[in-house]
Design a protein around this nucleic acid. Structure first.
Lengths: 168, 168
DNA sequence: GTAGGTTTATAAAGCAGCCTGACGATTAAG
DNA sequence: CTTAATCGTCAGGCTGCTTTATAAACCTAC
């Protein structure tokens, strides 16, 4: 009879997301990728797996500034996940390309997210999780934030920074 | 026939949360509370509406450091939403209490979150939204992050800072 | 009652992730 | 050939949080 206080839906969603991300990075580390952080998601999520992408395009799809993405790219380059090669078609631009390790990490990340979703489906109901996803997609579309902004093959998430600030 | 790329569930959740929070603060401003930010949520969410709370308790429930909460409290005090009065029962402590304006803001915030949830329910299905909430609560409970950490009468959410970094 | 350890709030400094503004280099348009 | 737009990057700044450190008050245990 411990009366539950009522918690705003956004809070629940935020915590759920935080848990999924936490789980994902834990397994990512187990898989040998212990030096990727949530902030790198814009790269793993928006750089084309095969052909690579230009910084500007990634930034636009990720809804971040070029500077922010550039920072993530620089760090991932130092760690051997991506490389920057000059764009043969445009002297100003560079193409961000995954290295083999980077591609492996991106694929692993995608797989892990799917895995966690599957586990939830198994535990809490296949249909319920599917509907949660569908519902989220519908609402987002309603607010004009549908997907298909680009290739977007893999995508971790947004921020992992803070210490799960709120309870929501 | 625009093939949707597949997006990780956490990304969808994060965006959904971001939209709800955005909506909420927009309406909050319309209601005359244009100077509250998401970071203040730890106060509006965890300070007891009637009797006030001590900083330490708020920080613990919000899963933040006392310093972080102290910062939010200081700002809200400057803006007239809360006041700090010495705790008659403990010379070290201070009680963070809502002013009238603060109480009104907290109640408005709670109402707005409920309102947005209701609108979603109306548009996308009463039962679906209810189940989304229930499902989220169940999963959180499964990971030991259930509610009932305290009074928690009102709660906005976590961070509003960035520019909806990812698309997920 | 007083010494030692704990708890209260706060201050100081730092860090991560994002932002804006400014800039050289290159391309595209007139 | 100028002029404007675009690409990537450097520099600086802000916000929200952290860790470390400190004074004051409390709570035992002697």
């Amino acid at each position: 009879m411990t009366e539950t206080p009522w918690r705003p839906l956004p809070s629940l969603l935020a915590q759920l997301k935080a848990i999924a991300v936490e789980q994902m990075f834990g397994r990512m580390a187990d898989a040998g990728f212990d030096d990727v952080r949530e902030g790198h998601g814009c790269v793993f999520g928006f750089v084309d797996l095969e052909h690579g992408s230009r910084l500007t395009d990634v930034a636009e799809r990720a809804r971040l500034t070029k500077q922010a993405v550039g920072e993530a790219v620089a760090e991932l380059e130092r760690r051997g996940y991506v490389e920057r090669v000059p764009d043969p078609a445009d002297g100003r631009a560079k193409i961000i390309k995954f290295t083999e390790r980077g591609r492996a990490a991106a694929l692993t990340g995608r797989r892990l997210f799917a895995e966690i979703e599957s586990e939830w489906a198994e535990r809490y109901g296949e249909e319920r999780i599917a509907d949660m996803r569908a519902c989220a997609e519908e609402i987002l579309e309603g607010y004009g934030r549908a997907g298909s902004t680009g290739p977007v093959p893999v995508r971790e998430d947004q921020r992992l920074t803070g210490a799960t600030a709120s309870p929501s």
